[in-house]
């Protein structure tokens, strides 16, 4: 631990003043203003655009700076370890974000819906308010909230697309591991191929997910507004899908860096960060597959 200053030649790198943080803050602010203006109907949806453009540029600028510094070899091992630790804790925060939505799912399934159906301490909820409700899962609630006039909806069966998507994500986890191995052992070609396979699998997953959403919206009567089932279903899978998209883009970026000869067998934090992220996305999916689609 903490050999940050073990030798004079290997100093911890403290950057100069940098414009990116403040630019980043302005970016986030712009993005949020755009979202607020859109949601409040102050402006049409294009008001989101500047924020997104600035956000994309933020990543380009900031990462370019960091990658440039790294390629010039001014990061010592301690800096590397800071990045790693930072990434790990960032992923932990993401885990907790998903935990909130999983918590909502469990709470609704195990407590709220049974209560509305007349179980446990709130039995009078059924007797007085929702006489004809049985509280069975999946449900869009006693009010049958949803797009169809008769209040019905169908769910996506676990054994269709979701099972295929599970297979896709699991194999992408394997390919990224193979790529990592190839990187460590210096097999650059194998690295390129398996990394490419990984992000292609990732994008395939997103495409299939989009198909599934399309079907849910047009044929199953399953929408974001389909009661608690629709809410938890789309919020969980939706946030997950966004993470897969981001992860796949990051994998692509990493791939281009590999093509440019970046990363050495010993030092490849960028690669590792992305692959951790990818594994994390994978694990979340397993949770989703089990608790959202299957059980």
């Amino acid at each position: 631990m903490a050999q940050a200053h073990a030798t004079e030649a290997d100093k911890y790198y403290i950057p100069h003043g940098s414009p990116w943080p403040i630019y980043g803050s302005v970016t986030l602010f712009t993005l949020m203003l755009g979202a607020i203006a859109t949601l409040n109907n102050w402006l049409p949806a294009w008001s989101l655009l500047p924020g997104f453009v600035m956000l994309a540029l933020l990543f380009v600028f900031w990462f370019n700076t960091v990658i440039g510094e790294n390629q010039h070899g001014i990061y010592n091992l301690a800096v590397d370890r800071s990045f790693r630790l930072g990434m790990m804790w960032f992923i932990f925060s993401e885990v907790m974000f998903f935990a909130a939505f999983f918590g909502a799912l469990f709470y609704a399934r195990e407590l709220a819906v049974p209560w509305l159906g007349g179980e446990g301490v709130k039995i009078f909820s059924k007797l007085l308010l929702w006489k004809h409700y049985d509280g069975a899962w999946p449900t869009n609630g006693p009010g049958h909230v949803g797009p169809r006039a008769d209040g019905s909806f169908e769910t996506v069966p676990a054994l269709g697309l979701p099972a295929i998507n599970t297979a896709i994500l699991l194999s992408s986890s394997i390919t990224v591991t193979i790529a990592h191995h190839a990187l460590i052992t210096g097999h650059r070609t194998r690295l390129k191929i398996f990394l490419a396979a990984t992000f292609l699998l990732g994008f395939t997953f997103v495409a299939l997910q989009a198909m599934e959403y399309h079907e849910a919206y047009t044929e199953l009567g399953l929408q974001l507004g389909t009661g608690i089932y629709g809410s938890t279903f789309f919020m969980l899978t939706g946030f997950h899908g966004m993470h897969v998209t981001v992860g796949a883009i990051m994998l692509t970026v990493i791939w281009f860096r590999v093509l440019n000869g970046h990363f050495t067998p010993q030092r490849h934090f960028g690669f590792e960060a992305v692959s951790w992220y990818w594994h994390f996305v994978d694990v979340v999916w397993l949770g989703l597959f089990i608790f959202v689609y299957w059980l």
């Binding site: 949601l39 974000f97 998903f98 935990a99 909130a100 939505f101 909502a104 709470y107 609704a108 407590l111 709220a112 819906v113 209560w115 509305l116 909820s125 308010l129 929702w130 449900t139 869009n140 609630g141 006693p142 009010g143 909230v145 929408q223 974001l224 507004g225 009661g227 608690i228 089932y229 629709g230 809410s231 938890t232 789309f234 919020m235």
Partner: peptide, 25 residues
Amino acid sequence: AGAVTMLLTDHFFKTSFFNAAGGGD
């Protein structure tokens, strides 16, 4: 962040996290 995001979607995107009629609470 998750909690306030649910508020946001309940308000703007018809989700039912906190609406008993839709099975929420």
